[in-house]
Amino acid sequence: MDLPGPGWPFEPSDAARARGRNTWAFTGLMFSAGSLLLNPFGIVGLIGIVFSALGLARSHQLEGMAYRVTGRGQSLIGLGIGLAETVYFAYRLGEYLS
């Protein structure tokens, strides 16, 4: 009886590989996405920015080790969402205080 070949029963997706190698990027993306739903005092967006920045640094390390999937996209999307949400919160707070 032959054993199953590589990738059996399925081959993990690129997102699953990035999540496994770069948990900082994935966590930053999840915090940033969560800030769209719940953002008390802008804290969740700031946490998303920090984790995404750490994930971006980790993606550069993984790139140096010649990995094809590094999580750079997840980090950049997390940074973008976190920054946009933090700027929106600051704008909303400025309107409320004036």
Rank of each mutant, 00 (worst) to 15 (best):
L56T: 04
G55F: 00
R17T: 10
L54D: 01
M65L: 13
A66V: 10
L3V: 07
W8T: 15
V50A: 10
R68C: 04
G28N: 03
G80D: 01
L37T: 12
W8A: 15
G20C: 04
G82I: 01
V69N: 05
L38G: 02
G42F: 00
I77D: 01
S75E: 01
A15D: 08
M65W: 13
V69C: 03
Y88A: 14
G5C: 08
R17K: 15
L97N: 08
T86P: 09
V44E: 00
A18S: 12
T23D: 10
A15Q: 12
G5Y: 02
L76R: 09
P6I: 12
F89M: 09
A66H: 03
G78I: 13
S75P: 05
E63G: 05
L62H: 07
E63M: 06
G80E: 00
G94W: 12
V50W: 12
F31E: 02
A16H: 14
I43Y: 12
L46S: 05
A16C: 02
S98W: 05
F26R: 05
L46C: 08
L37H: 13
T27E: 03
L46Q: 06
D14L: 10
A16W: 11
L83Q: 04
F51W: 11
F10A: 01
M65Y: 14
I43M: 09
S35W: 00
S98Y: 12
G78C: 06
Q61F: 08
R92A: 05
A66Y: 12
V50L: 09
L62G: 07
G82L: 02
A53W: 01
I43S: 01
F31M: 10
Y67D: 04
L62F: 08
E63W: 03
Y67W: 11
S52E: 02
E95T: 09
S98C: 10
V44H: 00
P9T: 06
H60F: 14
R21V: 03
I49K: 05
F10I: 06
N39G: 11
I81W: 00
P12T: 14
L46A: 13
R58E: 08
I77T: 11
Q74D: 08
S35H: 06
L79E: 02
P4G: 04
G34R: 01
I49Q: 09
E95H: 07
Q61H: 14
F51E: 09
M1I: 06
E11M: 10
I81K: 00
G94I: 13
R19Y: 09
F26H: 13
F10H: 02
G73N: 07
G7M: 10
F26L: 12
E63R: 11
F41L: 03
I81A: 00
H60M: 07
A16M: 14
S13A: 10
F41I: 03
F41E: 03
P4M: 00
F26P: 01
M65H: 14
A84E: 05
I81C: 00
I43F: 08
R19N: 14
V69T: 08
G48R: 02
L54E: 09
G78V: 11
L62W: 02
L36F: 00
Y67T: 05
L56Y: 08
S98A: 09
E11F: 09
M30P: 01
T23Q: 14
L54H: 08
A66L: 07
F10W: 07
H60E: 12
E95F: 05
R19Q: 14
I43K: 02
L46F: 12
A18I: 07
